[in-house]
Nucleic acid binder design. Structure first.
Lengths: 229, 229
DNA sequence: ACCTGAACACCGTTCAAGT
DNA sequence: ACCTGAACACCGTTCAAGT
């Protein structure tokens, strides 16, 4: 049910595919596949191919496809720093949590929606939240209020990161370099022909010129400023 | 590509299934099916069954399954008030936007993740954002800053609503009335056996006693308080 | 212990054929 | 104009059989 701590790869070597499989290697291959080719390409059979094995072999290491998806979510949470930096300061710590969650979305645009599609409760997520809980408690937060603060920051960062990734996603798919004209054509194609120009313009602003970094800074700062022990 | 404005149902009548299909009816049936039985049950064939028709018939009204998913996203956005209340006040308007997005997540827990899985840009979403943009512009916001504010509020509300729905989701599936003991068993089952008690306790707090309403109010208030024209 | 082959039920999608 | 039947390629999953 959890990410085992077996070494991911003993010492590489040329016959990489021939080491015995384990849950960890299966999940890492799954995340890599999703990052590379999207969620729709994640197939038990395809994943087996990726690992040099028949798809059916994977059932020895994971219960089913749902377990693979849940495992990917664990890998994503595990990318967050297990113990926050700032020993004492809680505001920088919360900023770090927010940046970490947004960062995960940015690094794994195709997998990120799983963070809010699958069950939220998993070991790495709990470890992560618990670490920040400790920081906030030490800073004088009552336990309940500390949890509220973490939920608020976590929710905001995740929502922002996901929205951002979905606004920009098609552009990223298109190789990250897309001219304004190409973007216009793409945006227009997915919208009804009779949509007023003003809304097309809005769509262009949302997919292109919106300064997400600044917007994220502002909103996370506003939220954290509004919290108090 | 957009939600047509044909009447959804002329006058009901007993032979409901025998009226000619249209895109609108297909999408509404799809959303209803997802609400009732979850995203995994949404199948072209099953959706046809729901409409008293063979699955293949649906291809006359929607391009493919992806188009159905995109259509569901449009329906969700269309549930938000097209034009915000407060003629002048921008803060209540933004609160309304936030509450609206969270409300959509609450009413459609199974479909809500689609809001951040599919393309973000669609006609009802643009109309919605544009309406709030107008309110903010009238209140003196520069256009760019108004967009930032809307993105910030939208992202936060969506993220919070999704996280909330995923924390509570299994409980909701279980009929919304689940004893603490049942929840403990369910939570424990999905977590590794060697997880420390303190993290199990945290999981119980996150799935149960967390006061999401208050938490949402606080964080949205903090964010909006931090914004200024 | 770990992997494979064959099989089953079920998908999404196409298309010629029906009415 | 709208729907159906048959067909195709591809899923997830199981299980007896291989090594």
């Amino acid at each position: 049910m959890t990410i085992t701590t077996e070494p991911a790869e003993p010492a590489s070597g040329p016959v990489r595919a021939r080491q015995p499989l384990n849950r960890r290697r299966v999940l890492e291959a799954a995340l890599a596949l999703v990052d590379r080719e999207g969620l729709a390409e994640l197939t038990i059979r395809r994943l087996g191919l990726e690992l040099g094995v028949e798809g059916m072999s994977l059932y020895r290491h994971v219960a089913d496809k749902d377990a693979v998806l849940d495992g990917i979510v664990e890998l994503l949470w595990a990318e967050l720093p297990a113990s926050p930096d700032g020993e004492g300061d809680w505001r920088p710590a919360l900023r770090e949590l927010a940046a970490g969650l947004r960062g995960v979305c940015g690094r794994h645009p195709a997998a990120a929606p799983l963070l809010v599609s699958r069950n939220f409760i998993n070991a790495p997520a709990l470890r992560c939240y618990d670490a920040y809980l400790t920081v906030l408690r030490r800073a004088g937060f009552e336990r309940r209020r500390a949890l509220d603060a973490i939920c608020a920051v976590g929710g905001q960062a995740l929502g922002f990161g996901l929205m951002e990734v979905r606004c920009l996603a098609p552009a990223a798919d298109a190789g990250a370099s897309e001219s304004d004209l190409q973007r216009l054509r793409r945006v227009t194609r997915s919208l009804p022909d009779d949509l007023p120009d003003s809304l097309i313009a809005l769509a262009m602003e949302l997919t292109g010129t919106c300064d997400f970094d600044r917007c994220f800074e502002i909103s996370i700062a506003a939220l954290i400023a509004g919290l108090e022990p």
